[in-house]
């Protein structure tokens, strides 16, 4: 369980903004600004945050669909950020992705059978016969019928299409699947079906998932651990139970207080944040949340907080907690406050 399959270290992705005919760089959108995390074998890591905080960019960088600006992405100890394109192509067998929009992620000109068999053909897995058989198996596994192979995507509903996307990702027996908001385009009832399908598949094939979403209840349902992102950085990373029960970062606290509770009698302590998310082109100095943080200190304006363990397996990046701990523990600045 604790053996890591993917380790992301100091990943940075800037999208340059260019101007004029000479494409002079005039700035950069800091989509991911130095994030690090680990995914263990067989677990599901949820990645949450609001729109534009860099969740999907992270997923796409891990698959090298986007080239990371810098940083390391260690997959089973191999740095995939440094592979050339043909080496990367071979590695894609082990890392697959399920896309957000099931209407956009299937080529309208291919039959379902061709589509699901395509990854196997690309990697030369099996003969035509075994591929066909596997396609039919996969369709049954994801809850469709084997006679669907000769149909085209437009003949299916959104939920069915997402199942096709899942079958395509599964066809090459990947070790890690990046789920990029796989249910946000679906109806709530279908969402549950697809999520449960993913859970079942994970159990059956011992898959590791990176589950990107903005729906906190969905993430809670499927994840073992959850990372909260804000403006290109991870602000908190913890076991889902601890995080949902007791979020420590002020941003997470505000975020989790926004989860609707289906009980009108219950009084909620809703934390409302002021203002908008700052532009990732010119993020605030120091802790990039300080402009909206109700507990901002002086130090937050100047110094970037570091993501570190404040409780067992509960990583938070906040000066507030640091200073609290310093107050409790004494004066030693360098000692890492573990098991506080």
């Amino acid at each position: 369980m604790s053996e890591s399959i993917l380790e992301v270290k100091n990943l940075i992705k800037y999208f340059p903004i260019t101007k004029g005919i000479l494409s002079k760089p005039v700035g950069a959108v800091k989509a991911i600004d130095d994030i690090s995390f680990t995914i263990n074998k067989g677990e599901t890591l949820g990645l949450v945050g609001e729109s534009g905080c860099g969740k999907s960019t992270t997923g796409r960088c891990i698959l090298r669909l986007l080239e990371p600006t810098s940083g390391q992405i260690l997959f089973n100890g191999q740095d995939i950020a440094k592979l050339d394109s043909s080496e990367m192509r071979l590695l894609r067998k082990d890392i697959q992705i399920i896309f957000q929009d099931p209407y956009a992620s299937l080529n309208p000109r291919l039959t379902i059978g061709d589509m699901i068999a395509e990854p196997m053909r690309n990697f030369g897995i099996g003969t035509r016969k075994t591929q066909e058989k596997r396609v039919q198996e996969l369709l049954e596994i994801v809850g469709l019928s084997s006679y669907h192979t000769s149909r085209y995507p437009h003949e299916f509903s959104g939920g069915q299409r997402q199942r096709i996307g899942i079958a395509r990702a599964l066809s090459v027996n990947p070790k890690l699947i990046v789920c990029d908001e796989p249910v946000s385009a679906l109806d709530v009832s279908i969402q549950a079906q697809v999520i449960n399908l993913l859970k079942d598949l994970q159990k059956e094939f011992s898959l590791t998932l990176l589950f990107i979403a903005h729906d906190l209840s969905v993430v809670k349902h499927i994840s073992n651990r959850v990372a909260v992102m804000y403006l290109g950085r991870i602000v908190e990373l913890a076991d889902y139970k601890n995080l949902y029960k007791e979020p420590m970062h002020p941003y997470s606290q505000a975020l989790f207080s926004a989860i609707p509770i289906p009980n009108p009698g219950l009084k909620k302590n809703r934390i409302l944040l002021e203002g908008d998310v700052p532009s990732p082109i010119n993020p605030p100095s120091g802790c990039n949340f300080h402009t909206r943080c109700p507990q901002a200190l002086d130090i937050c304006r100047h110094e970037k907080p570091v993501l570190k363990e404040h409780k067992t397996k509960h990583l938070v990046s906040c000066h507030n907690l640091d200073s609290e701990q310093r107050r409790c523990k004494g004066t030693d600045k360098t000692s890492l406050p573990i098991n506080y």
Binding site: K93, I97, N107, E118, V172
Partner: peptide, 10 residues
């Protein structure tokens, strides 16, 4: 997205 997907499936 389906072109991106085709890249992802090698």
């Amino acid at each position: 997205e389906y072109v991106e997907a085709s890249k992802a499936i090698g």
